[in-house]
Simulated assay, not measured.
Amino acid sequence: MHTHITCLYGHAYTSTAMLAQIATADIAKEMGFDKVPVYSYPVEADSESELRTRLDGIFSGVGFGDFIVLQYPTWNNVEFDQAIIRKLRAYPRLKIAIYIHDVLPLMFEPNAYLMPTMIEIYNMADVLIVPTEAMYQRLRQEGLQVDRYVVQEMWDHPIDLDLDRPEFIRQFHFAGDVNKFNFAKNWQSNLPLRVYSRDPETALPDQVITCGFMRDTELIVNLAKGGFGLVWADDDHINEYFKLCITHKLGTYLAAGIPVVVPRHLSNHDIIEANHLGLVADSLEEAQDYVANISAEDYDDLVDHVDRYRPLITQGFYTKRVLTEAIFKCLDNRS
């Protein structure tokens, strides 16, 4: 049995969606998986015949009786995702796992109408890899029928860097687009908020320091200098999605070795509490007060706990676990 995993290419180098799929596929490759590149392109330009020919080429290395992981969405369009699963479902004895990174009808309100199509796609899989238990239960409410599933819990962030120990600095880091988050544009604290994103469209408070977009290694090195990684949003829809998804920036902060501050409604906040990796806060004001008053000794204790936990993320163990469990779910009737 050969194992395969799809991987998105063709997005801008700033695309978190593409970086997450590449990182996942790279970890899978260490386990013996073959990468199946899926490029972003204008699917609507293809005729039905051209699309069939394109898919024949993409999946030419996949054989009967193999195991394939489809990282969804492909970020082309839903019709393309649908065409992939329909094609592969016709392969005799092929086992298919769908690795759900995001659910577009839940992620973006205007895409809510796509939910029946996405459920149809998911129901054609043998096993699902879902970000959280809450996401699986939400999809069940929408008509999901697949009983075999694996829960991811956290994004890995593989790195191979020799980082210095973070210094005790009373500051926040935010790896997100400052133009999309009002809390950053209206920052009300004397503590610095260092933002890693494209240039702001409006003037920002003096304590918001724009650092520009940084590629992965540069970002990790800057985060590792010290402070707290912040996961936050003030948009109701994003906060609802936080309950279902797992955010990539959380793994990035922990890979850099710094403690984090997250909202209590974040899906995997229990990992932060159980492993003493930072603060789970009920409000931004609570978070700011916590950072303003934490002692150097308490900060160092958090850094020690992060250092103990971070190999799970930097060495790809979450991804390795879900891929291994997905294979067992497909092949072992006890699973």
Rank of each mutant, 00 (worst) to 15 (best):
A292W: 08
V262I: 10
I272C: 06
T132V: 08
Q152N: 12
L223H: 05
T24F: 07
I327W: 12
V178T: 07
S47E: 03
P42N: 09
M18V: 03
V103W: 13
T247V: 07
V261Y: 02
V69W: 06
A134M: 09
E44H: 05
E240N: 07
Q188R: 13
L139P: 11
P37Q: 02
V69H: 12
Y290C: 10
R194I: 13
V130D: 09
F183Y: 15
Y149H: 14
L94I: 08
F108S: 10
D164C: 09
F108P: 07
P73K: 11
S295V: 09
I294Q: 06
K87D: 04
N186T: 15
P73R: 11
H2V: 00
F317R: 15
L70H: 11
E79M: 12
L139M: 11
T324M: 09
I258D: 10
R170G: 01
T117V: 03
H157R: 14
I246N: 07
I68S: 13
D216L: 09
L104I: 15
Q171S: 03
V291E: 05
V62A: 13
Y72F: 15
E142L: 05
P259Y: 04
T74A: 07
T314N: 08
G32R: 02
F33H: 03
Y9W: 11
M107E: 14
G143Q: 04
C211W: 00
A23S: 14
I271P: 01
E286M: 12
I271W: 08
P42Y: 13
A274P: 00
A184R: 02
L279F: 13
Q207F: 00
Q145N: 02
D332G: 03
R310K: 15
D234E: 02
L114D: 03
Y122K: 00
R194E: 09
V303Y: 08
E297R: 15
M115K: 04
A28E: 02
F228R: 08
V221G: 01
A112K: 01
